[in-house]
């Protein structure tokens, strides 16, 4: 008796292990994607696929349900019985300008529940739609090929070292060295550019005014000193001496002021150039996704 039962159990177990998962695939694409069905069959030949393009416009309102996973359980069970499949795979692809959105749903026909969902929004790349579709299906089947991943990475930069940037920190620094604020404007930092330009223009103007006053005082001093030495009239001597003394004092004050302002201007100028370099245009190393306040997860 045991000799009969054991082979029977073994054969049944073997037949259940070799049983291929069966899928009903419902593709809803807003644009025609040629050979999508053929490529799915070729890439996953261990699985059995049934296709039905007649079933359209189902689950358009899936996101409006409180519990999308169990919202269409009866319909899924019915479809499972009708097509004799264990899973229903619903793939939706919508194109938006240079992007496309793939919304993939995997239902178990035994329970009728939604067991897996993937919704991705990607920039279009060569054969991107079919590649993402295959990756999604592969994910549900536990199969991932490196080639598919490489195809997806084609939309990323290959090697940062090989990139040529239109704008560089050094370009910003040189521009700021030529004209304060130019480097910041070049880096699209308008406020910073305005502040730097304003500060440097003010300092430069103050320096020029101080220098012009110094120059005027120095010339006045020399002129009055000459007049002082050229006269023997005591009143004129006193007058020219007083004027020369005043000019001498002014030329000392304005000289010191001009030197201080020149130092401040040049220091500011160099700092402005360094600032332009430090905060110059660079590729982003950290890219964060924008916070989605409408997400259900965030509400929880």
């Amino acid at each position: 008796m045991l000799k009969i039962i054991i082979p029977f159990i073994f054969v049944n177990l073997l037949s259940s292990m070799n049983q291929e998962p069966t899928y009903l695939v419902l593709n809803h694409f807003d644009k025609d994607i040629p050979q999508a069905e053929k490529l799915l069959v070729e890439n996953f030949n261990n699985s059995k696929f049934e296709f039905d393009a007649a079933l359209e416009n189902i689950f358009t309102d899936l996101d409006s349900y409180d519990n999308p996973a169990s919202s269409h359980m009866d319909m899924m069970k019915e479809l499972g019985e009708k097509y004799k499949v264990s899973f229903i795979l619903l793939n939706k692809i919508e194109h938006k300008e240079d992007r496309f959105v793939l919304d993939g749903l995997l239902f178990n026909t035994r329970s009728g529940g939604l067991i897996h969902r993937r919704k991705i929004d990607l920039k279009q790349y060569l054969d991107g739609q079919i590649n993402e579709l295959i990756m999604w299906v592969g994910n549900t089947l536990g199969v991932q090929e490196k080639e598919w991943q490489k195809n997806r990475e084609s939309i990323l930069f290959n090697d940062p070292e090989e990139l040529t940037y239109d704008k560089t920190p050094m370009g910003a620094a040189i521009r700021s060295l030529i004209a304060p604020g130019w480097g910041q404007a070049y880096s699209n930092k308008k406020t910073s550019a305005g502040v730097w330009f304003g500060v440097e223009a003010s300092l430069s103007l103050a320096f020029i005014l101080s220098y012009l006053n110094y120059d005027k005082s120095a010339k006045g001093f020399l002129s009055n000193t000459d007049l002082y030495h050229q006269t023997d009239d005591e009143k004129l001597v006193a007058k020219h001496r007083a004027a020369a003394e005043k000019d001498w004092g002014n030329h000392i004050i304005y000289s010191r002021l001009a030197i201080a302002l020149a130092s401040a201007t040049s220091t500011g100028w160099v700092s402005n150039s360094i600032h332009a370099w430090v905060f110059g245009p660079r590729p982003y190393t950290n890219i964060y996704q924008e916070w989605d306040s409408s997400s259900e997860l965030n509400k929880g």
């Binding site: 001093f221 002082y228 006269t231 023997d232 009239d233 001597v237 006193a238 020369a244 001498w248």
Partner: peptide, 18 residues
């Protein structure tokens, strides 16, 4: 061009009592 030369005072007119 912009160097600020500082001059020394040279008041030595014999008619100047100071």
């Amino acid at each position: 061009f912009l160097s600020c030369k500082l001059y020394k005072k040279d008041f030595d007119n014999p008619v100047d009592y100071i």
